[in-house]
């Protein structure tokens, strides 16, 4: 058994020149056909597809970046608009505030002026009334005095009474 194994083994490990020549020739023919006919369309086809995929990916990336840029621009515009709107609103509020304050001031002034005028006219009226009153009182007093004098001019007590009356009146 060992013997046959050894013998067979030696033939197994032997190099057969004629066989090698055949293989080399076949390999050259095989590689020749592969190089000339089989592989070029495969290599080129796959490369083309890869390139087209790559270019589509690039285009998609570019489109995405553009879209991002546009949306960013849009955002910027919206923000700008918001900012403007806010400033306009602020200005408007300020203006309204100012206007209101002005109006209030004016109203207050007018009111004060009105009050002052009223006071002044009241005072005037009062002075006028007092004057009139005084004149009336004087007239009345003169009349009363005249009447009293007609009756009792010399009476000391009466004189005192009249003076007191006049004083009282003038105080009022």
């Amino acid at each position: 058994m060992m013997m046959s194994l050894f013998l067979a083994g030696s033939s197994l490990l032997s190099f057969n020149t004629g066989f090698a020549i055949w293989i080399l020739i076949s390999l050259i023919v095989f590689l020749g056909i592969m190089y000339k006919f089989a592989l070029p369309p495969i290599i080129k086809g796959i490369e083309e597809r890869e390139q087209s995929i790559q270019s589509s990916l690039d285009a998609a990336e570019k489109a995405l970046r553009e879209a991002e840029k546009i949306s960013k621009d849009n955002e910027e515009v919206v923000r700008e608009a918001e900012r403007t709107a806010q400033s306009i609103r602020k200005e408007a509020t300020k203006e309204v505030e100012e206007f209101r304050a002005e109006r209030m001031e004016k109203a207050k002034e007018e009111a004060e002026k009105l009050i002052e005028d009223a006071k002044k006219s009241i005072d005037q009226e009062k002075q006028k009334a007092l004057q009139e009153l005084r004149k009336e009182v004087t007239d009345l007093t003169i009349e009363a005095t005249t009447r009293l004098l007609q009756k009792n001019v010399d009476s000391e007590t009466n004189r005192k009474l009249i003076d007191e009356t006049i004083n009282d009146l003038s105080k009022n």
Binding site: I33, M34, F37, P41, I42, K44, G45
Partner: peptide, 10 residues
């Protein structure tokens, strides 16, 4: 197989 694949790519 390679020629078949090649014809498909073509």
């Amino acid at each position: 197989i390679s020629l078949w694949a090649a014809s498909r790519y073509r």
